Amino acid sequence: MSDARTPRALVVGEALVDVTRKPGGSVAEHPGGSPLNVAVTMARQGIDTTLAAQVGDDHFGSLVRAHLDRSGVRFDGTGSSAPTASATATLDAGGAATYEFDLRWDPESLPEPADFDLVHVGSIGAWMAPGADAIADLVRRAHASGLAVGFDPNVRPALAPSVPVLRQRVFDLARLSRFVKLSDEDAEVLADGDGDPLSVLRDLAAHGPALAALTRGGASAVLRSGDQEVEVQVPEVEVADTIGAGDTWMGTLLTELLVRGWADRSSFTADELRELGQAAVTAAAITVSRPGADPPWRNELVRPHG
């Protein structure tokens, strides 16, 4: 990757509209989906980012395209004319979200990974049939070419296959990925009653990633590389809602790796893990302080390394 140009990232997976229902009956529509949120996070922080996703020619599709355009994300349609997906998020009194989905994932074509400096995949697009096979092929090709791959399974139990099938797919993708993030909820599903989230993180980290991370909501995040493991405390903020927090975390991590020139690294020191984790939790704290998935822009963040 040349220092003379802006790093290029490809993000692949679902784009949808979050229909948010709040206590009291109010309803709001916000473009979202984990891969879309990661792409928006990276673009707002200065990365030349392309999102490959299925978006229809409908009202929700117009919302998604306008949101991507405002955030500086390049959009690459996957050839499908299916209606734009949606997720209804019902918020409880504390701002935590539960989801219901209306979506499909069957991309007809995906961009060539070799044209980018980093590829990120994850969420529903990485494990929902039939499109998950296209994602797996993309990751295999990226890995074979030495390209850095980011992966966030972002498990949704209501949509996921059986736990053994899901776990196999997640671990297969993690083996070919350099940077992997789990939430504690992801880890609990993958553990299937056999082990705690930290044990899942350590098991996954031992299977190939240069860096694996576990986010735990308002509790500390854990980052691991080889035998190095650190905890990073989460800033205390007034929470509007938690939508997009984990995606902001992941997008910021990938941005930091690209900006620092660390995307080709195979290991990290404890101090480096703390720096990366601190940047990620800081950005995610901004997102949870405002409604919907609204990641911070570069000028809202302090980046002492330039």
Rank of each mutant, 00 (worst) to 15 (best):
A52C: 05
V302K: 05
A221K: 05
F151H: 04
E272K: 13
G25F: 03
G226P: 10
V237E: 12
H30Q: 06
Y99G: 07
D241E: 12
A114N: 03
G146A: 14
L103I: 05
A114K: 05
A4M: 14
V149Q: 03
V38R: 00
G32T: 03
V222Q: 09
R175M: 05
G218A: 15
L253T: 14
A240K: 02
V121W: 02
L118Q: 02
D247I: 14
D3G: 13
I135Y: 06
V180R: 04
R65S: 12
G79C: 12
L223W: 08
A279R: 07
E231I: 04
D92F: 13
R260D: 00
G25E: 02
V180E: 03
L258F: 01
D137V: 11
E256F: 13
A87C: 00
V200I: 11
V55P: 06
Q228H: 13
W297I: 09
E112Q: 12
D3A: 15
G95N: 01
T269E: 15
P197M: 08
D57F: 02
A97C: 06
R202V: 14
F179K: 04
A270T: 12
F75H: 10
A210F: 09
R224S: 14
E100F: 09
P107F: 02
W105D: 01
V230I: 08
G131A: 09
R167L: 09
V73P: 10
S26C: 06
A53F: 07
L253Q: 05
